[in-house]
């Protein structure tokens, strides 16, 4: 159990780091979605089933759709 938790935490910190590191928004949003997925598994390891379901549905599903629809209508530069 402890080994699995350590592996998941390493993935968690790595995906958060990548989400901050990249300058392009699309890659960053995809890494945020992976972050939420790993966080869901960690919630399940900590025996919080309701929170895991909410995080899977909202963090990995709805947040990604909302961020995508936001960046798809942002125009860079040429407007005005």
């Amino acid at each position: 159990m402890a080994v699995l938790e350590i592996i998941l935490v390493i993935f968690l910190v790595f995906s958060a780091l990548m989400a901050v590191y990249f300058d392009e928004e699309l890659i960053s949003i995809i890494f945020l979605s992976i972050f939420s997925l790993v966080l869901t598994a960690l919630y399940l390891l900590h025996k919080a089933a309701d929170v895991a379901l909410a995080e899977a549905v909202i963090g990995a599903g709805l947040n990604t759709a909302i961020f995508m629809s936001a960046i798809s209508q942002i125009r860079h530069g040429d407007s005005d």
Binding site: A49, D50, A54, G61, L62
Partner: peptide, 25 residues
């Protein structure tokens, strides 16, 4: 199912509601 079994299994109004919103998406 997630909404109506909120008091028996993991889940409840918030999670099931977001699943219903996913249909509209």
């Amino acid at each position: 199912y997630v909404i109506t079994h909120g008091h028996l299994t993991p889940g409840g109004g918030f999670q099931g509601g977001v699943i219903l919103a996913a249909i509209s998406i």
